[in-house]
Design a protein around this nucleic acid. Sequence first.
DNA 1: CCACTGACTGGGAACGCTTCCAACTGAGCC
DNA 2: GGCTCAGTTGGAAGCGTTCCCAGTCAGTGG
Lengths: 342, 342
Amino acid sequence: MNITLDDIARRAGVSRSTASRVINNHPHVNPAVRERVWQAIRETNYQPNLPARSLASRRSQVIGIIIPQPIHTLFADPYFPLLIEGIAHVCNERQFSIMLELATTTAGNPYRHLGRRGFLEGAIVASAVEDQFLLQWLAQETIPVVSVGRLNTHPSIPYVDVDNRHGARMLVEHLIERGYRRIATITGPMNIVAGRDRFAGYGDALHAAGLPVLPELVVEGDFSEQSGFSAMQTLLRLVPIPDVVFAASDMMALGAFKALRAAGLSVPGDIGLAGFDDIPLAAAMTPTLTTVRQPIGVLGQTAAQLLLDQLTTDPPAPATQRVILPTELVIRDSCVPNAERR
Amino acid sequence: MNITLDDIARRAGVSRSTASRVINNHPHVNPAVRERVWQAIRETNYQPNLPARSLASRRSQVIGIIIPQPIHTLFADPYFPLLIEGIAHVCNERQFSIMLELATTTAGNPYRHLGRRGFLEGAIVASAVEDQFLLQWLAQETIPVVSVGRLNTHPSIPYVDVDNRHGARMLVEHLIERGYRRIATITGPMNIVAGRDRFAGYGDALHAAGLPVLPELVVEGDFSEQSGFSAMQTLLRLVPIPDVVFAASDMMALGAFKALRAAGLSVPGDIGLAGFDDIPLAAAMTPTLTTVRQPIGVLGQTAAQLLLDQLTTDPPAPATQRVILPTELVIRDSCVPNAERR
DNA sequence: CCACTGACTGGGAACGCTTCCAACTGAGCC
DNA sequence: GGCTCAGTTGGAAGCGTTCCCAGTCAGTGG
């Protein structure tokens, strides 16, 4: 059996209340007594029982990270590790623990009501898909939630997002500037705001340049390599094929690249290719991939900060924060039109 | 205030004990009563309070995943997402939750005694580094632990591992078979068993072929891209340079590849290159990378199964399991000696 | 010398559940 | 009709904390 607070109290010759006060750093404890209690704690290597503490105090010092899709669809993408690391960084500093709620199948409700059950004090929804489950969950959950990625359906939920629209616009404007005109895009899933935003940025750039958005040049993907591959195959059936393809994620760009390689086309010789995310792969490919970098670690850190601020301030912060982080255009070798190389 | 078990009991016209029995699926409850209780639960959308439950039952249905190194050293490596997904898959099926204990700095003790505190029922140590902290932690922790990767220092701890030694040996034997003789290696960190095992496999293959292990051809890395880069620079100072380099991780192979590219050398024309892990990048590079595949998802699943079996069998399973999973040689384009291409 | 104050301490009631134990019930049996 | 016994139920004691409340005690000002 483990050591309890009572053991500590007895050992230090004080009451349980006083021992508790020492542990929780309450004022009004005689310094000598305080030291005696600490001594007992050190000697016994005492660790407070967390469930008991949570039960009594209604606080758990635990937040959840909820990832609604199975990760393997995003497989090689270091997005989640980096995001989680950002969150963990802040949590470690502020003595919070992380519970990982990871959907492993596409079927079923990925959200569990851990908040209502006294386990979680707050939650970060990573890569929110605006589906019925999320909406239902948000409606019933009573703990503070921060979303990574804007939720159009729930404007009142605090979120942290990167400026996807502007990033995509910068990239496509860069393509136009380089002389590309027949610009195709492989979009992300349209039920994720990031997918819609990046597509909107693509449209912005074309409009600004007086170019039309041609439906045949737009193919929807789901951010995965596989979807990039098949989307590219679709685009290759066009006559003429596009000058350049903007894939809304680097993984899709990779898939597209493989489809091009399979079709015997070279990048950027026969067709340009650009991505979004700047995963390490982008710099490792041959040719290196022009893309848009997003500060994933900072995204996670900010989300965690927003959430913990809400949890630790007293009275609770108003929970109305929105943060948009900037993106950065990364120009590499995959988008050099032939005209420019002559 | 949330609904409690008492509310349910009152609503269903039974005692709290009976309501509890229904929720926990105990036998000896009248079917009609059982149905009444379920009805009350459904109507009120009741969720049991988890801390209270843990306190009373001394079970939490939570296991920890402990990752002692900051992830960003392994940055782009999809190892952890895949491992975690494997674990999550089993946990979701068996109604367990996952707590993520992630070190975010290299300083300090990455292990917290969550087990002794009643929070964790068991823990999976991912990518165990045999340092003083782990040893200390294992000595004090009272909950079942499963290690991903063998721990030579603690032979009694159940583990799941891949056959790193044999995998590396197969790979290097393949290189020898292809005609390579001056075979260098960039090893993993020597305080990780996987690093040592892969190096041992390298040695096995050379010995079997009657080749010496030359110290100058062995450079220690830490599995990261950066370390591969600088290790390759070291190797390039040799005269003559190696025929081929076996990097003990794909990320190090990538780093090495970049160093070669920077030095104006081509792969496999001027020098061969092989990795270990078969991350998606390996198939995406130009040239595609010869490597060894390890079943990471299965690794995670097996670790979780071992742990949960120990937790859920009554009386507890003896905790002496060891599982070694096979690796698979993946031959691609980065190791084709010139002799063979003529 | 006597309230009065304020720092300090202990008692005890929660917190919401599990689980042991005792008691009840009615069917089956002699 | 009394007995046994398995199935079913309720009562109540924890589980290890937190935290409110009341109490003690020394120091202070009048």
